[in-house]
């Protein structure tokens, strides 16, 4: 049997993800996280923060909650159902930072926690920052400011 034939056979036998469940679950759980964000946003603005500060505080709060839920071993259990619903919001980023930090504590605080903290989320910062630099250069070169 050649590789193509085997690949076809494997696809036939392998069960696909239950997208008819996964997508609605991701929608609802992700939507709820954003609704919580909106609630916090309104709360901070009610307490007198301007929109920009309130928005920053929302991010910080969600990052804290996500890290806490990660430490309490709850985030992965929600994510099992949430899928992209817990991945795409900023809480997913915080989970990707906190999880390796906790996991690699056994290798010490320098080579474990410190060095491994960004094994997953590091790429997000690297490519986000690079994209912003490219955009900045475009602004400078074409004098868009």
């Amino acid at each position: 049997m050649d590789k193509q034939e085997y690949s076809k056979l494997t696809d036939k036998v392998s069960q696909n993800s239950k997208s008819y469940l996964n997508i609605p679950k991701a929608f609802v759980i992700g939507g709820l996280i954003c609704t919580l964000g909106q609630l916090l946003l309104n709360l901070y603005m009610y307490w007198g923060a301007d929109k920009e500060l309130a928005s920053t505080l929302v991010s910080v709060t969600l990052v804290f909650l996500s890290a806490l839920f990660t430490g309490l071993d709850l985030y992965d259990n929600i994510a099992k159902h949430g899928g992209a619903g817990t991945l795409v919001p900023i809480t997913g980023f915080a989970n990707a930072v906190a999880a390796p930090a906790i996991e690699f504590k056994t290798e010490g605080f320098i080579l474990g926690v410190g060095a491994k903290m960004f094994t997953i989320a590091g790429s997000v910062i690297v490519y986000g920052t690079l994209a912003s630099v490219v955009y900045g250069l475009i602004i400078v070169i074409f004098k868009l400011y």
């Binding site: 990660t70 071993d73 985030y75 994510a79 990707a96 999880a99």
Partner: peptide, 17 residues
């Protein structure tokens, strides 16, 4: 898990296979 995949607390989904 920690060697081959993700940290235990990382929220990921496993496919049916």
């Amino acid at each position: 898990e920690r060697q081959f995949r993700f940290p235990l607390e990382y929220g990921g989904q496993r496919p049916p296979t």
